[in-house]
Design a protein around this nucleic acid. Structure first.
Lengths: 175, 175
DNA sequence: ACATAAATGCAGTTGACTTGCATTTATTAA
DNA sequence: TTAATAAATGCAAGTCAACTGCATTTATGT
């Protein structure tokens, strides 16, 4: 179950594009964050995973900030006593497995992760091929490229659409 | 971007047999392949890239076979005197840059490449998450997941859709 | 508080992909 | 045809994200 990535392009500059929407003391946002965090921890528990400070900090960061983020970006944003790289990778993999986070790849050899409050909470991204900024697109339907260009001011737009599933042969064998 | 009429010659590594005007008993498929190859080489030339035996063999393989293929798969299929890995990577990168091939990633850490006879010849893939077999899907519009499941016998289908472009800031700077 | 299964983190490994550089080769001009 | 030269090649060595093994620590149910 290797999930390695190609170092296809150049290393990517990880600058600060985190949204610091840190909230006021008792806003809806805070309440939502707490709620989402508790939900997530419930899912952890159901999956037989422990609620560790590492995981809680990681989850909180992903819930409070709108990704997707690379491991590098996550590490910079977290308390440095947390997050040996190995632990971070392992937790992200765990979270992905139980559906708490979604992993994306943008062709630069780095995986990026974002919180997924619900499996149906599915959307897509547009990535600047120059500065690597990532914007999120709403729905799950294929928007017209022109609309995207217009709405976000992007030019030279291309897209990549891949489906993943279990083929007939494999699902037969698995039975 | 047409260049010249194809003389439809064999792709040998010896350089002085380019005048073999074969002509007969070949199927439409062969003719198409030759034609596509000549077109591709014209694009090479226009891009200032040389027509080497390596590149010609690589192009022919990609034209004759329906990818996408990993570097590993390509290497196995080609004459072993061709294709040191480095050269292969470099040529694939060159081809991608001038639009002759399209690179895809399916999350297993390996880039895959396929011939793209025309920039508009754009389609998508469905990948078995178990055996990694890849099927191609026709058009460029978002098919209904159910249809795919039905048509190809896939189950547990998910998809990934990413857009790439140059954002407002970057295109401003580039001017 | 205890037992224990899971989580952590260091060190070391993997593997896809790149880079540097000396050599070879396709192309263009003489 | 040949000479000039810019590009292509290929070996060795490097890079870097991501992974594994294992000894240690810790969360959790009893």
């Amino acid at each position: 179950m290797k999930q390695k990535k190609p170092g296809a392009q150049r290393p990517l500059k990880t600058k600060e594009n985190l949204k610091h929407t840190k909230a006021l003391a008792h806003s809806h946002v805070d309440i939502d964050v707490s709620h989402l965090l508790e939900d997530a921890c419930g899912i952890l528990r159901n999956a037989g995973l422990k609620r560790t400070p590492n995981r809680e900090n990681l989850l909180r960061f992903l819930i409070e900030n709108h990704g997707p983020f690379s491991k590098e970006e996550i590490q910079k944003a977290l308390p440095k006593e947390d997050f040996d790289s190995v632990t971070l990778y392992r937790n992200l993999a765990n979270f992905e497995e139980i559906g708490l986070v979604r992993r994306s790849e943008f062709g630069d050899g780095v995986s990026r992760y974002e919180f997924q409050s619900h499996p149906d909470n599915h959307h897509h991204h547009i990535v600047c091929t120059t500065c690597h900024k990532v914007d999120s697109l709403d729905s799950c339907s294929l928007p017209k490229l022109d609309d995207i260009v217009e709405k976000f001011g992007y030019s030279k737009v291309r897209h990549s659409l891949e489906f993943f599933g279990v083929c007939k042969d494999c699902s037969r064998k698995q039975k």
